[in-house]
């Protein structure tokens, strides 16, 4: 300890004699803090406004154009005619491809998440590689998934399948529902993994320990204690994957979507019509955009209801899980 007296080494006392009697009003208005708080606030509200504009524009215009006839009709070849057209095959096609995708992606995604949270050592090289792969998969452009579907599922798996089954015509070695679904399953795999992992992590370790302490095996603990608790999270993952996949067009461009089909798809090797692709076709190929506008808005509204409603549900469940998790820590 040095030997200086406090007044020697402490900062100068201010000459201010009103010390202790001065009030606590702000000396001067802090303009820059006010300005920048306002600026970032404006940025935030601008984003919200953009979202609201898009939704309202589509909601209002779409609502006035949509009808029961529209969603329940299989259109004729000229689907640009506002009076006779419908989107039933597109709704069916989009739904089926998403359902088939779910069957593939949920088990694989959930099992991977279970491995990552319950079994893997967090620091091991392999775990880190798996995580890096998941992250990367999430960042691969959707069009590259389309190329992958074409190059792997159709040109490799499909063509070889045809060879093995001795099909003279291409049955599997061509764009088909199953290939589009599989391509989407690969694309949404990270969505399911991340959501499931999040919900698994939110389960208190005490619960697992309690089960293990009763003599349950790890697998029993996972199946009977952990998974039931994680169900909302897994559900969220599934819904997010479905909502993401339902709106994607690029990955199915080369793997299964059809411009027009007279009947609904009936087989996994059939091609299908799709809502998102139909939006693309209507907005870029229409001979008269003014006449197509109402049915275009109606189609977009159907697509949005399908994807957005699901997404909203998922976001709500998810923020609930996060809140629970935060209150835990």
């Amino acid at each position: 300890m040095n030997t200086l007296t406090p007044s020697e080494y402490l900062p100068e006392k201010s000459a201010d004699t009103t010390r202790f009697t001065r009030n606590f009003r702000a000396e001067k208005f802090d303009f820059w803090s006010f300005f920048f708080s306002g600026l970032t606030g404006a940025a935030t509200w601008l984003i919200v406004a953009i979202l609201a504009t898009i939704l309202l524009n589509i909601g209002i215009n779409g609502w006035s154009a949509i009808s029961w006839h529209f969603v329940s009709t299989i259109p004729k070849k000229d689907f640009f005619d506002a009076n006779t057209t419908g989107v039933l095959p597109m709704i069916v096609g989009t739904s089926i491809r998403v359902i088939v995708m779910t069957i593939f992606v949920i088990p694989v995604g959930v099992i991977t998440a279970i491995y990552l949270t319950e079994y893997a050592a967090n620091t091991s090289l392999l775990t880190r590689i798996i995580r890096a792969a998941v992250n990367n998969l999430a960042g691969v452009p959707s069009i590259v998934f389309g190329l992958f579907g074409l190059g792997f599922f159709i040109n490799f798996v499909g063509k070889n399948l045809d060879k093995i089954l001795h099909n003279t015509d291409a049955v599997w070695g061509q764009p088909a529902l199953v290939w589009a679904s599989l391509t989407l399953a690969v694309m949404t795999l990270p969505v399911v993994i991340v959501a499931t992992e999040e919900s698994l992590k939110a389960i208190p370790a005490g619960l697992r320990e309690a089960s293990l302490a009763l003599g349950a095996t790890k697998l029993q603990t996972i199946l009977r204690v952990v998974l039931p608790q994680a169900l909302p999270g897994i559900l969220t993952g599934g819904i997010l994957a479905v909502s993401r996949a339902a709106g994607e067009v690029a990955p199915i461009l080369f793997t299964g979507v059809a411009y027009y089909m007279a009947s609904l798809p009936s087989h996994l090797s059939d091609q299908f019509m799709d809502l998102g692709y139909h939006v693309f076709v209507l907005s870029t190929q229409s001979p008269n955009i003014e006449q197509t506008r109402p049915i275009l808005y109606a189609t977009v509204l159907v697509l949005l209801i399908l994807t957005f409603a699901l997404n909203l549900v998922a976001v709500l469940i998810r923020s609930n899980i996060r809140k629970k998790m935060r209150s835990m820590h």
């Binding site: 919200v48 909502s243 709106g247 994607e248 067009v249 697509l303 949005l304 994807t307 997404n311 976001v315």
Partner: peptide, 11 residues
């Protein structure tokens, strides 16, 4: 704001 990511790019 995160809902914005739920709008399909085709929309």
């Amino acid at each position: 704001i995160e809902m914005l990511s739920g709008i399909p790019s085709v929309v």
